[in-house]
Nucleic acid binder design. Structure first.
Length: 107
DNA sequence: ATAATGACCTCCA
DNA sequence: GTGGAGGCCATTA
């Protein structure tokens, strides 16, 4: 896994506007590495200290925010709501509304 | 070289 | 809505 992959992904994540979200698959694709969604997740889960990116704006396909295996599953939800993201009744993010990038808006 | 694992994804019962 | 199967790809044992 070339360093540029991490750079590209982290760069993209950093550019997600507050109150918007993107998905693992989407980011991997934008970074130029399609089908590498899992590695995006791995990256965000193993960020070196000092590096801070808005990881809370990265959700699973369909707007899922689960963070399996981790205790603070509600933490991400908290952060997002704090940014103005309204979760659906099922506790998911409406990608139609908050998804980024949304069309040719920006990238 | 094979097997297991992971902040995942999609499809289908 | 939930849960399982199969697929995905790099890393590690």
């Amino acid at each position: 896994m070339p360093p540029e992959f991490a750079r590209a992904v982290l760069g993209l994540v950093a550019r997600i506007p507050p109150g918007r979200v993107s998905t693992y698959g989407r980011l991997a694709e934008l970074a130029g590495w399609p089908r590498h969604s899992r590695h995006v997740g791995h990256l965000l889960g193993h960020l070196p200290d000092g590096v801070s990116v808005p990881w809370q704006r990265v959700v699973g396909a369909g707007g899922r925010i689960a963070r399996p295996g981790t205790p603070g599953a509600d933490y991400q939800r908290l952060l997002l709501e704090h940014e103005g993201v309204v979760l659906s009744a099922s506790g998911r993010v409406d990608l139609k509304r908050y998804g980024w990038p949304a069309a040719a808006e920006d990238v």
